[in-house]
């Protein structure tokens, strides 16, 4: 009986820990000008410098918008006008060897500077676009995606 209670407690605790990790911010808005938005759980809000980002956030800009963010692994990303992106996967747990990132870019202009995930686990960072998949190995690039 006591063991069952202990196991239950352990399971609940681990569920609480993994939930806490999922909710942890994965990035930060650093620059924002013009119309720039974060779409989270179906709600759209204006993105402002200092806003925290979580997994699954969609970042978008209007015709005059520009947005710059830094992710928790020191990846630096900026969006030009009329751009749509979503952070689909983000794992930065070097101790547990959980490392990876998938960024979807549906349209628009981006600049990307690799962070620690790409350095610790080359080949684990992917940019998905309607025109091609980009595999990123520790580098810096710009892209215009015209779907």
């Amino acid at each position: 009986m006591r063991i069952q209670v202990l196991i239950m407690c352990a399971l609940l605790a681990s569920a609480a820990i993994s939930a806490a990790q999922d909710d942890r911010p994965i990035g930060l808005v650093k620059t924002a000008s013009g119309e720039v938005f974060i779409l989270r759980d179906g709600r759209r809000m204006a993105a402002l410098p200092g806003h925290q980002l979580v997994l699954g956030d969609e970042l978008s800009t209007g015709a005059t918008g520009a947005l710059g963010v830094i992710l928790r692994d020191d990846t630096v990303l900026s969006l030009g006008p009329s751009t749509e992106t979503r952070i689909e996967q983000f794992a930065f747990e070097p101790v547990d060897q959980k490392l990876g990132m998938v960024l979807r870019v549906t349209r628009g202009l981006i600049e990307y500077l690799s962070g620690k995930i790409s350095k610790l686990a080359p080949g684990s960072v992917r940019i998905e676009t309607p025109v091609a998949t980009l595999g990123v190995r520790g580098t810096r690039f710009v892209a215009r995606i015209v779907p």
């Binding site: 600049e111 500077l113 690799s114 790409s118 080359p122 676009t129 025109v131 091609a132 998949t133 980009l134 595999g135 990123v136 190995r137 520790g138 580098t139 810096r140 690039f141 710009v142 892209a143 215009r144 995606i145 015209v146």
Partner: peptide, 23 residues
């Protein structure tokens, strides 16, 4: 008519990694 384009940029004057483009 705009095409999609991906351009590798130097960091501190040199390129350190690579980008593969696949479809």
């Amino acid at each position: 008519a705009q095409k999609s384009i991906i351009i590798l940029l130097p960091e501190d004057g040199k390129v350190s990694g690579e980008v593969t483009i696949v479809n």
